[in-house]
Design a protein around this nucleic acid. Sequence first.
DNA 1: ACCGTCTCGGTAAGCGCTTTCCCAAGGAGG
DNA 2: CCTCCTTGGGAAAGCGCTTACCGAGACGGT
Lengths: 344, 344
Amino acid sequence: MTGSVTLHDVARRAGVSLATASRALNGSANRVVGEELRERVLRAAAELRYSPNAHAQAMARGRTNIVGLSLHDIADPYFSAVAAGVMRAAEAHGLLVTMASTERRPGAETDYVGAFRRHWASVVVVVGSRTDDRAATDQLAEELAAFEAEGGRAVAVSQPRLPVDTISIDNHAGARDLGHALHDLGHRRFAVLAGPTDLLTASERVAGFREALAHHGGRLAAEHVVSGPFTRDGGYAAMQRLLDRSPDVTGVFAVNDVMAVGAMAALRDRGVEPPGGMAIAGFDDIATLRDVNPGLTTVRIPLEEIGALAVRMALDDGVARPRVHRVAGEVVVRASTPRLPQPR
Amino acid sequence: MTGSVTLHDVARRAGVSLATASRALNGSANRVVGEELRERVLRAAAELRYSPNAHAQAMARGRTNIVGLSLHDIADPYFSAVAAGVMRAAEAHGLLVTMASTERRPGAETDYVGAFRRHWASVVVVVGSRTDDRAATDQLAEELAAFEAEGGRAVAVSQPRLPVDTISIDNHAGARDLGHALHDLGHRRFAVLAGPTDLLTASERVAGFREALAHHGGRLAAEHVVSGPFTRDGGYAAMQRLLDRSPDVTGVFAVNDVMAVGAMAALRDRGVEPPGGMAIAGFDDIATLRDVNPGLTTVRIPLEEIGALAVRMALDDGVARPRVHRVAGEVVVRASTPRLPQPR
DNA sequence: ACCGTCTCGGTAAGCGCTTTCCCAAGGAGG
DNA sequence: CCTCCTTGGGAAAGCGCTTACCGAGACGGT
């Protein structure tokens, strides 16, 4: 990185000192630079195509305009929606987003927060469900605490129990409402494609759904809860297994939309066109999947808004921390969950 | 950002000088640090939870491990796939990705490349189709040239004519092959949902499709080319307009998958279940959309691989630049383009 | 006419690290 | 026993910027 133009060059060309040049360019607070000089400096800077060195500024100022974002997988539409919100809000505040994808590797989040710390990020957003891995969670908590001790602001999405501001999706209530909706449509025999067993997000959704069933006097048999990865293929495989052992089920709740779509594909590969007398519901209301056919019944979560909110929370001043923000979902019934003529 | 522990603290605690501490931690080349001292330093660093200041390192070393990525919209699955590839490759090389989303604002790319320059990014990847906006393109070219003059490496995806390494998708050939495939299925009366008129990616796809038709003695009437944004809603609206004025068309080529899905929704809203005697094809083979029903005929582009390739190209040493890498697509025929019993 | 008070430019001290250069100590060779 | 390497640690000069702090001139009040 040689040959770049420095402030020194600008100052010399404008015939002023470094201090004046710096002040002219930054419009430093409570200090005025004469109109003529300021213009001379600005002109010199433009002529030389001067571009300030962000690292030098960071050093001198002791802070940066970087927000660090850690998520599981940017190719997953759930995370890319949240990321879009983070980037939109960051842009609005003149911040630059540095993003890291953990690929669900345990401990990766801690490593990345460490990297953000080294870069003196002013904001860190961690998104991704809490897992059962106690050690990993503790390390992450410690790293985040260190980050905040240094003056940074962290917000965690879907990871309660971290010593920082948190945004939680109300998975339990969303799944419960969805359960009620399916019951109202006449369904009685349910199964759940439960996602990874160690993910809080997944287990909360299962629990909420269970509560709805219990409310109506029903229950979820153990063999009707099929776990598997949070992916399309995970949903596909889980649905296969379910169809093999429990053909009498009429209502299937896949704990996210991506799995639900995989489940529909599995059904299709068995020669039955979904919903085919069955109700299949998902969770999240992923925008890209709003046009699948039949339309997927799901719980809408304002993912992008959550991302933006995370940044805004981090930037809030003069509030007691940590805070917890809960965001609710809303059931959206579409064609994938037809009414059952007569409950059985 | 106060209170962070510095190398100075580590050195003092280990009872050595700054120089030794630095050498011990970085394993500096052609200089050996005594085993005992090295261990003492490492221990001190661990005890103090020392975390080196990336900006100070950048200043002193004159380089960073940042790759800057500029794209149109991270929520769009096309871009998030490319981004996933970039991040995967970056991670493999120990680089950190700083991402900016232009939201298709003209000139934004130039601004962001400027920001990456200020951060002394070692690699910059710009992804997004070239437009007709000459002035914007020229400015971007100039900014990228300045970036490379300072020792950085830039790669542009889908933006030829930039003075840097480029990856081009062979839109023309892909669309042409798709046109042949639709012809082979018996279709003769075509329309194109053409995307934004000023985007090279869109116009290349239209041109390639046209070539295929011409090859078979057909042609595309002007009223059968409907433009509109590269989005789901753009596809929906374009399809509406098309159905209003040209109900006799049997083959519709939407220049990307997202629009194709919108087109299918439009058809459905008219009460006809796709394909409904019509063929609808897209382009890109977006992973999230592989399970729409009917399955979308499209041209598969290895988007994630393109992102990874961009990083690898940037890191190549000792090659003459700029280079142009062309990547081909492959037609994937699915159920959205049924065979027409007898060509008409 | 003098002095306090503004205004506005310059000087220089860092920010935390890397790296060059210098120097001390110990061993080998004469 | 002295000189010349070799090995390994330390001092200090930056990297490019911001920001006290200082000082010089202009201006107005008494």
